[in-house]
Design a protein around this nucleic acid. Sequence first.
DNA 1: TATGAATGAGAGTTCATTCAT
DNA 2: CATGAATGAACTCTCATTCAT
Lengths: 200, 200, 200, 200
Amino acid sequence: MSTGSRADVGRTPRFARGKARAAALRAAAGQVIAERGYEAATMTEIAARAGASIGSLYQYYPTKKLIAAEVHAEYLDQLDQALVGLSTEAHTPAAMSDALFDTLTGFLARYPAFPTLAARRDIETSRKLASRTRLEESLEQSLASTRPPLPPEAMPGLAVMLLQQMKVVVALEASGREADRQAIEHIRRVLRRYLEHLVG
Amino acid sequence: MSTGSRADVGRTPRFARGKARAAALRAAAGQVIAERGYEAATMTEIAARAGASIGSLYQYYPTKKLIAAEVHAEYLDQLDQALVGLSTEAHTPAAMSDALFDTLTGFLARYPAFPTLAARRDIETSRKLASRTRLEESLEQSLASTRPPLPPEAMPGLAVMLLQQMKVVVALEASGREADRQAIEHIRRVLRRYLEHLVG
Amino acid sequence: MSTGSRADVGRTPRFARGKARAAALRAAAGQVIAERGYEAATMTEIAARAGASIGSLYQYYPTKKLIAAEVHAEYLDQLDQALVGLSTEAHTPAAMSDALFDTLTGFLARYPAFPTLAARRDIETSRKLASRTRLEESLEQSLASTRPPLPPEAMPGLAVMLLQQMKVVVALEASGREADRQAIEHIRRVLRRYLEHLVG
Amino acid sequence: MSTGSRADVGRTPRFARGKARAAALRAAAGQVIAERGYEAATMTEIAARAGASIGSLYQYYPTKKLIAAEVHAEYLDQLDQALVGLSTEAHTPAAMSDALFDTLTGFLARYPAFPTLAARRDIETSRKLASRTRLEESLEQSLASTRPPLPPEAMPGLAVMLLQQMKVVVALEASGREADRQAIEHIRRVLRRYLEHLVG
DNA sequence: TATGAATGAGAGTTCATTCAT
DNA sequence: CATGAATGAACTCTCATTCAT
């Protein structure tokens, strides 16, 4: 707004620091939300865990909802990145099922706040919406790239279902009970068989 | 043993009047938690919706956590009741899959606070633990009653998995998106095919 | 809402205490607002000065704006009461001017938060609106009761003007400077002469 | 004496560039304070509206109170300038009353933050005090220049009163209600008649 | 026992002010 | 001098819980 033409010279380091701090804040938010849930996660703790003051947090993210939305959008983008690789190589449906399973499972293990954020319907942003749309397209594209191909009309529902299954898996992984561990194996097999069957 | 540990159950109501009021309070709690989520559900609103005063609510359930645990336990018991019927008649695995699907779906539609309560790991009670154990046994028993029978070693994991699938289904039902509706159909088919396959 | 039929018996003392507390809170709010202005008046200080907790304050007045509106409405009602007496006795215009001057001056000295509250256009309530309307009618009625009578068409503007003059007077009284004291005398004379002149 | 005490004036800008920026900042402060009131006016918005950074704002005016005081002082000086012209020509008391009325009304329309600033008793500066004194002297001089002359002993109080009346007028002008519009006319007549009467 | 007024810790958020760049 | 990120005290408001009646 009030930036003169000379401002750019010295700005790069400031800019970089700002980006780093914003990233640290998002990371902290992800941690705290994963541990405590959305409501119980306090802005104060998020700031503290990022080594920032509460005022600084609000400078970057002026609302609790907004930082949550940004964190969620970031996760969606990460997942999108992870998925684009899958559609480049040829996969059988069964192999694709396993690849998706591993990718999504790995992702959710890394970003444990994802299910919590995904469950909230009151946190929306245009940025988040865009990320979500992109992700859904990537997932469908992965599903569409198998040899032999899956029936196109099954795609949208399939994509949604797979995502949901992953959430279940991660929830079960957290518990560590023997029955839960077995359930995960069941799900893996269930999905592989189902994709195989769809092409038959 | 039949009374349970009294410490975490609040005051046991001895008269019919008290029992009815306690039930009304639990019902109200279920409603409010379903509508607003656990954190946003206030004790004041729960009491008001039950036509009681907060003081009265606290007389029966001295803690928010406790009434939540009691509501959850009640739900687990209800579901247990619904399942015991399934094991009396002979079912093929596919039929059992459908029967479970319908039973669980119906249950969750009736008690929409169930997933919310089930997701919280900080709300535990000896009473709730007992109910959960009983329920898991009933589910396994249903699965064990099919003709031809499912392999016994698959049981525990299978039971857990089926429960999780139902939660997914209910979550999807709430959204109303077309892709979500299709995903539900996928899940139903996935499960039936899987149970059929297990006996082969 | 959940009041049984028996509730009334023991309620009177509780009710009376509640009314007293609400009055104490309003009085405290008036004091603090008068001393510090609306923005700088904190809910915490209001509660403390009323000997109540912050939670208690919010139980009676769930918003800062709302308690301000109630205080203002109360003041308007008080002033209305003070004015109704004036129109019962016969007054010459000059005498009425003095009587109004004294009444309003006394009122404003007693409720120093009145100008502050009257100046805010963002604090409105149906209750307050009603009180204000009633007051304006009373003022006009007082002005209309003089012998000989003032010209009716002058009334509305006259009422407004007199009210404004009173605010000025009180502002000047607060300062204590000699010139301000003289200014007050000027205003008093100005008004008396003007009302006299209007009938001529 | 001519420099004033430097302690409460911030850094004196020595170059034209600095003077212009300081003026822009004061203008912005005036705007924001007029629109939002003193408390709600934020230093950030003032800086932004002047096309400056907050850092820059604080370089010139190290305190919110201080910039408010400077703005107020500037206004007082402006008004002083407007008044000195009035005493040069001969006026009857009635004409002087009208001239003052128009001058003051025009001034207040141009600097709408003036009443807001004038109302605050917690913003004082030696510079502001000096400006105020000078202004009061100019007003008294104007009043003293009428033909026939007003009684000298009435002067100080008269000056204060007239200023107050103008504030009332401006407040009423802002509302736009019919009764308020009439009230303004009453005030204008009241004052003219009073000045006329004083010489009689 | 039932009631609901009272409590106060704590949450989200704002903004004047500082200071490294 | 200019900049704007950083700071943290302070504010409004919420809600689980207690206790006098």
